[in-house]
């Protein structure tokens, strides 16, 4: 932990990654599934529209991908900055 600037760069990289993920998280759920649903109403999915699919399934799948992407990417960032475990 001697190299302080290194840790700052690490934390900045983490914040950047979290921000990107949470923007996608919000767009998929609050956006596509709820507030932007009228805009997507032209896209038909199985007898209804894309917004309904996002509300009942799509958002959950997006959340799943996001968490695994974050875990994978973050574990890599740990190594790049030399702060990983072991």
């Amino acid at each position: 932990m001697a190299e302080q600037p290194n840790n700052n760069a690490y934390w900045a990289a983490n914040i950047r990654l979290v921000t990107i993920c949470l923007v996608i998280w919000a767009i998929a759920s609050y956006g596509f599934a709820i507030l932007l649903r009228p805009m997507l109403s032209g896209i038909a999915v199985g007898g209804t529209d894309l917004g309904f699919w996002f509300a009942q399934q799509g958002s959950i799948l997006v959340f799943l991908v996001l968490i695994f992407f974050y875990a994978w990417r973050m574990n890599k960032i740990d190594k790049e900055h030399g702060v990983d475990e072991e």
């Binding site: 979290v18 949470l22 309904f52 509300a55 009942q56 958002s59 996001l66 968490i67």
Partner: peptide, 20 residues
């Protein structure tokens, strides 16, 4: 449709928990 909030709310919290 209206109660999709439960589906999204009770799963989306895990994104916050995993990252924050």
């Amino acid at each position: 449709y209206q109660n999709s909030t439960f589906l999204m709310g009770w799963t989306g919290g895990y994104v916050l928990m995993a990252m924050l």
